[in-house]
Simulated scan of single mutants.
Amino acid sequence: MEKRIEIKKVNKFYGKKQALFDIDLTIEQGMFGLLGRNGAGKTTLMKTLAALHKKKSGEITVCGVPIEKAKEIRVLTGYLPQDFSMYPNMKTDEALEYLGALSGIPKAECCKRITSLLRKVNLIEHRHKKV
């Protein structure tokens, strides 16, 4: 499986306002930062890559899967917006378990992933604290 996101000549409009202008970008496996001023189109691009918004034109593939196959894309990706409100009384591991259930991940596998992911991001000691 290809492990990259390919974006070719992508455009997105909100009515007559163009939010994305001929975006050409290849994102290889690894960590990638998306920076820009307010209104630059960062959120629009992210929502388009997560198959939450439709593009007007151009091509996008995620791991070789065309963005139009939204269900397949959502299995491969996750999207967490900057302003994300969760149930404030949930503990970190409860919130992750809930999100895993929404994604259809079996409970035993989810518990293993939660521990592994919390270790990777140095939050294991916060797993029982409220979000």
Rank of each mutant, 00 (worst) to 15 (best):
R4Y: 02
V10A: 05
N11D: 15
K12Y: 09
F13Q: 01
F13I: 04
F13K: 01
G15M: 07
K16R: 11
K17I: 14
Q18I: 14
A19D: 03
D22A: 11
D22G: 07
D22N: 12
T26W: 06
E28Y: 02
G30F: 10
M31Y: 14
M31Q: 10
M31T: 13
M31F: 13
F32A: 06
L35R: 08
L35T: 08
N38A: 01
A40S: 15
G41Y: 01
L45F: 03
M46Q: 00
K47S: 01
L49R: 05
A50P: 00
A51H: 03
A51L: 00
L52E: 05
L52D: 01
H53W: 00
H53G: 00
K55T: 11
S57W: 06
E59C: 03
V62H: 09
C63W: 00
G64C: 09
G64D: 04
P66G: 00
E68V: 11
A70V: 06
K71V: 08
K71C: 09
E72P: 06
R74L: 07
Q82H: 08
Q82W: 05
F84M: 01
M86D: 04
N89Q: 09
T92A: 15
T92Q: 01
T92S: 15
E94M: 07
A95S: 06
A95W: 12
A95Y: 14
E97S: 13
Y98E: 11
A101W: 12
A101T: 15
S103Y: 07
S103P: 02
K107C: 02
E109Q: 15
C110P: 10
C111R: 11
K112Q: 15
K112C: 04
K112M: 13
K112N: 12
R113L: 07
I114C: 01
I114Y: 01
T115Q: 11
T115E: 14
T115R: 10
L118E: 10
K120H: 12
V121E: 14
N122F: 06
N122E: 12
L123G: 08
H126R: 15
R127A: 10
H128V: 08
H128Q: 09
K129W: 06
K129H: 11
K129Y: 14
K130V: 13
